[in-house]
Simulated scan of single mutants.
Amino acid sequence: MSADRFASRWVGLVLVALTAVATLWLAVTGRLDLYVHPRYTVFVVVMALLALAAAIGAAVVLSFREGADAHAGHGHAGEHERGDGHAGDVDGAPRRRAGTRIAVVTGSAALVAVSIVVLVFAPPRTLSVSAAAARTDSTVGAVQGASEPSGDPSAYTVKDWSNLLRQGRDDEVIGQRAQLIGFVQADPDDPDSFALSRFVITCCAVDARPTSVTVYSPGWSSTLGVGDWASVGGTFAANPSVLSMSSVALLPSSVAPVGQPSNPYLQ
């Protein structure tokens, strides 16, 4: 089989199969939740299984077709050999075009294959503080698709408190105690405050958006660094800072560095 025919018939199927296997591997190892919302895990796994089954089925069909083409080709071999001797005069343009197609397909396939290998074998990295800064917009409202917090406020997350504050419900928040875990972002307006942040996933990591609450803690940078994960306990109050843009802040009674949670994203 020529390289051109291989590129046009088989490379796509191989990449589909590799992508499906990589997706299933992430699901088996428990890392798929770092890329898609848990509510879509079953859907993604089912689609990966269907894609793998389709790729295998198409490979079987192509194998039979290749065998039939090869058998038919033997029957015409003698006719080609009895040609008029001008085979060598065929224009080289089709061959050059075929070579270009092979190069493009091979390069694309190599890029996708390397990406799949990195996705499977490289340790997954969560979205960074720089990504949070790039995706933060202080003018937006509550996290899109967020549900109304309910139940015991002591179980509220950074997302829950942030949504209440963004809705202007300061009176409901002030005086409430909270114990929160998030990563540290510097407050660009007030060196005595920092933002305790989490990423919230709606569908997948691509659409993740940061949400945060302001923590008023003079001298915080002596024990915490930007990007560190911390557990902060305290009470919400009117922000004593005259520099911060936040009207309400968490006044901490305890601040302790912690490790990154196994699932760093909130849903």
Rank of each mutant, 00 (worst) to 15 (best):
78 G>C: 01
209 R>A: 12
175 G>F: 05
127 L>C: 03
30 G>I: 05
257 P>G: 14
216 Y>K: 11
35 Y>M: 10
146 A>I: 04
152 D>F: 06
19 T>E: 04
219 G>D: 14
54 A>W: 00
214 T>N: 13
257 P>D: 13
162 S>E: 12
120 V>F: 05
30 G>E: 01
262 S>G: 08
168 G>Q: 01
5 R>M: 04
20 A>F: 04
164 L>I: 03
81 E>R: 15
189 D>P: 00
7 A>S: 05
132 A>Y: 01
8 S>F: 02
239 N>Y: 01
86 H>T: 15
54 A>I: 03
112 V>T: 08
176 Q>W: 04
147 S>E: 15
30 G>A: 11
133 A>D: 09
197 S>Y: 06
101 R>K: 04
213 V>Y: 07
235 T>P: 02
224 L>E: 09
248 V>D: 09
102 I>S: 01
123 P>C: 01
78 G>Q: 07
118 V>Y: 00
59 A>R: 09
206 V>D: 12
165 L>G: 09
64 F>R: 15
9 R>Y: 06
163 N>I: 03
27 A>D: 15
175 G>P: 07
132 A>H: 08
254 S>W: 03
72 A>T: 00
41 T>D: 07
183 F>C: 03
221 S>I: 06
60 V>T: 12
9 R>G: 06
177 R>L: 01
56 I>V: 14
112 V>D: 06
21 V>E: 08
220 W>E: 10
94 P>T: 01
182 G>L: 05
192 D>N: 11
